[in-house]
Design a protein around this nucleic acid. Structure first.
Lengths: 112, 112
DNA sequence: CGGTATCCTGGACGATACTG
DNA sequence: CAGTATCGTCCAGGATACCG
């Protein structure tokens, strides 16, 4: 492993982590990695969030360029969310994180 | 609320992220990946943290099993911190996150 | 359906001083 | 040197109600 980073570069990992470290972002990310989903559809899968917060997290993922929001005209409104290319490139990395976690976290785990 | 791991398989990524998502943990992790360091040595490298908080972050990394604390007897006291095996296995994954960030975050980057 | 608008609370983080 | 001990601030996240 190399350690030739400079002051700013050291934080690249941190910057990346910030993009996905909202309370519900990993789960959102997980669901969206199967494909596009409507807002309510996503909400049903993650029932413990308030709509407000789910929205906030989505907006943040959106402005981080990881998620794209698409509006279809008509009534009732139809809005879908999906991973961008940039977001999709993150998936295999998160998958490795997941594998690591599975290897090291056994038994009972704390959720909140 | 406690759940068995099976119930939150989806969240393994989240669990992993929680372990390293303290404000200073990625940077601590970065520094320790070069080898063991004494407390003050580490503190000098990360001057914007208070000792209290640096301690907190180290304790959390420690109880997550990512970092090991070693005390040498004598005065003045000498305490070193280093990555555990489990922690070291995380390094290549964080390195890929870093690579991803470097590819996608251009220009000036926010440090805080 | 897919949002806003308010109001509130816990806890992460910080500043500072003291100690074995 | 490597910590505790206090006290204070800020804001992410939550509860709830309303809207086009």
């Amino acid at each position: 492993m190399r350690h030739t980073y400079r002051e700013v570069e050291q934080c690249a990992t941190k910057v990346a982590l910030n993009l996905i470290s909202g309370k519900w972002k990993p789960i959102i990310f997980f669901h969206l990695s199967s494909g596009a989903m409507r807002f309510t559809e996503l909400w049903r899968e993650i029932p413990r969030v308030s709509k407000k917060v789910l929205l906030e997290q989505l907006r943040q993922l959106e402005s981080a360029g990881l998620v794209e929001r698409t509006v279809q005209n008509g009534f009732p409104p139809e809005v879908t969310y999906q991973l961008t290319h940039k977001g999709a490139e993150l998936a295999p990395i998160l998958y490795r994180l997941d594998q690591w976690a599975m290897r090291h976290i056994e038994g009972v785990v704390q959720i909140s």
